Structure formats: C-alpha cells, structure tokens
Amino acid sequence: MINAESQLFATNTSTLPLILIDFDQTITLQDTIGPLGKFGVNFTQNTKPWSYFVDSYLQEYKEHRKHFFDLPKGDFKAFVAQLDSYRSIERASQERLSQYKVFQGVTRQALTDQANLLRAEYLQPGVIDVLQEYKDQIRIISLNWSKDWILGFLKELELSKDCIFSNDLEFDESGKCTGNIIPTILTTGDKQVAIDTFRQQFKTIYIGDSLGDIEALIKADLGIIIGNDRSLLDSLADFGQETEQDIKKPSSLYRVDTWDQIRSLLQQHRSI
C-alpha cells in the first residue's frame, strides 16, 4: 500500500519532501487515546471502567521496566531495541480492549463526530492552517487505535485513509466495529519501518514530540520536535544529536514550541 500511494505522490509532486507527522501531542496538545477509550467504554456501557484498562497497562509497563539493564554508552541501536521491547505491553493492552469489546458497535461516523467535539480543546493552535498548505505531502504515522478518530480531528484537510499509518478498529459489513483492534504500529520500530519505505524514494521531514519519535527524528532529512519532552531531548544529547532552537540557523534537527514556528521551517525547506 505504501509503495502504491508513494508512486501516486511522485507523479504529482516529485520534487517535494514528504512531511511525516506523529499525531498525539504533536498535532494535538494532549494525548487522545484516553478520550477515545473513555468514549468506547461509555458507548458500550462496558462492564469494566476505563481505569481498569489504564491501571492494567501501567502495572505491566512498570513490571517490564524492572527487567531493564544499563545499556552501553552511545549504543543507539541497543537503545532503540529497548524502546521496541514495549511491543508486548502495547499488544497486551490492545488485546485487553478487544477481549472486553470496548468499541463493539461503534460506527465510523460516531468516532469522527466525537473527535469533532474535542477539536477545539485538543488541537494545537494554528496546526490546521499550517497543514492545509501542505496536505498533499502529509502522512500521519501514529500509535493511535483509530484512523477515523484521527480523520475527525483533521476534517478540513480531507485526507485519505491511505495517508494515515496507524492501528485501526475492525468493522463488519454493517459498518459497526467488531470490538477488535488491528495492530499495525505498536512501537518506534514499527513507525520506522513505514518511514524507511518512504525514505527509499523521497526526502522526508519528520515532526514529533516524544521519545518514541527519536529514531524518526534522527533519520529524517529534517527533524522537528515540538514541545519540551526532557526524556527525548536528554536522550538526543546523550547520542550527540544537537537540537537547534533558533529556526533562522541552519540545522537538520530543530526544537520549537508552536506550529507557527513549524510553518516557518516548512517554508524554508520546501525542497531539501
């Protein structure tokens, strides 16, 4: 699928870089997985409260971290492998949601409608205006559980689902969710598999906010960090990656606070 849609992009805009963007806390101010899960629990009047799923995830996460060991200094490959080791935790969380049918019966329209209700509260200021200018170049790469949910937040862009690479809910022939989540992107490594496919053909700009974006930010032709996630910034420094905060200075890796700054950087890097 990636190769086919990449060829279509190449036909129309072959000289432009692809803009690959994380969703939660990059396009949005806050993580939207919680609101999505709460919506499912409320919609299905589930036997388990949302707190059950959160607490189960956190307990498994903490238990997993107990088995970590100190990594060789400067070993980026080992660091990424450690991040990818959370795959089993993420998958177990999705399987738990599927087991309890948290989203069973939810329609695509219900998901987009609920996302629409949250847009004003959750979207980063100015993000839609910036993305409108580049919507043919945009690909969303996310650990979120629903493409329809993401599209609901980005309705003005009228993106195709082919432009979103994420996990997704499964639907039956009647258009209602079976309750199952289809796993596609569970870790930073999964993100990078999708990104590397693009990088074989195009220059890439990657925009992200957290430690899960570290490999994509480093490997992109231009990496842009929004926000001030210390775990990400400290880890980049540990691996000798200098992060530039003055968008007027040349760099391949920037840290910014707003989407207005990202607009300026995209204008400067229309071609890479």
Rank of each mutant, 00 (worst) to 15 (best):
residue 44 T to I: 03
residue 97 L to H: 05
residue 127 V to K: 04
residue 157 L to C: 14
residue 21 I to M: 14
residue 124 Q to H: 13
residue 19 I to R: 08
residue 78 A to E: 02
residue 51 S to C: 13
residue 107 T to P: 10
residue 92 A to V: 00
residue 133 E to L: 14
residue 45 Q to C: 05
residue 55 D to V: 09
residue 142 S to A: 13
residue 130 V to Q: 09
residue 110 A to T: 08
residue 33 I to Y: 14
residue 86 Y to T: 04
residue 155 K to L: 12
residue 154 L to E: 13
residue 139 R to A: 04
residue 142 S to K: 03
residue 27 I to P: 03
residue 123 L to M: 07
residue 157 L to H: 11
residue 131 L to D: 01
residue 85 S to G: 07
residue 154 L to I: 15
residue 18 L to Y: 05
residue 138 I to T: 06
residue 161 K to I: 11
residue 23 F to D: 02
residue 136 D to A: 07
residue 69 F to P: 05
residue 117 L to R: 13
residue 73 K to V: 09
residue 113 D to M: 08
residue 65 R to S: 04
residue 109 Q to H: 15
residue 66 K to L: 11
residue 138 I to S: 04
residue 45 Q to E: 12
residue 36 L to V: 06
residue 138 I to W: 04
residue 144 N to L: 04
residue 50 W to T: 07
residue 115 A to N: 09
residue 145 W to H: 10
residue 152 G to W: 00
residue 125 P to H: 04
residue 31 D to E: 15
residue 131 L to A: 02
residue 39 F to M: 03
residue 50 W to Y: 15
residue 129 D to L: 01
residue 53 F to C: 08
residue 143 L to W: 06
residue 21 I to F: 07
residue 42 N to T: 11
residue 40 G to C: 11
residue 57 Y to G: 00
residue 83 L to I: 02
residue 59 Q to W: 03
residue 82 Q to N: 10
residue 48 K to R: 15
residue 113 D to E: 10
residue 156 E to R: 14
residue 138 I to K: 11
residue 161 K to C: 05
residue 134 Y to V: 15
residue 107 T to W: 08
residue 128 I to A: 01
residue 73 K to L: 02
residue 92 A to F: 02
residue 147 K to V: 13
residue 106 V to S: 01
residue 34 G to Q: 15
residue 24 D to H: 01
residue 37 G to V: 15
residue 145 W to Q: 02
residue 30 Q to F: 15
residue 119 R to C: 13
residue 140 I to T: 10
residue 38 K to N: 13
residue 29 L to E: 14
residue 25 Q to R: 15
residue 148 D to K: 06
residue 112 T to H: 00
residue 73 K to H: 06
residue 39 F to L: 01
residue 132 Q to H: 07
residue 91 R to L: 00
residue 56 S to H: 14
residue 139 R to S: 12
residue 122 Y to H: 14
residue 28 T to D: 02
residue 43 F to T: 14
residue 122 Y to V: 13
residue 135 K to E: 12
residue 70 D to H: 12
residue 125 P to T: 04
residue 105 G to M: 03
residue 54 V to Y: 09
residue 87 R to S: 04
residue 75 D to I: 01
residue 44 T to R: 06
residue 29 L to D: 01
residue 49 P to F: 11
residue 138 I to F: 03
residue 25 Q to N: 11
residue 138 I to H: 13
residue 82 Q to S: 05
residue 104 Q to I: 07
residue 101 K to W: 05
residue 58 L to V: 03
residue 131 L to E: 08
residue 87 R to V: 09
residue 23 F to H: 12
residue 131 L to W: 02
residue 142 S to G: 10
residue 135 K to M: 05
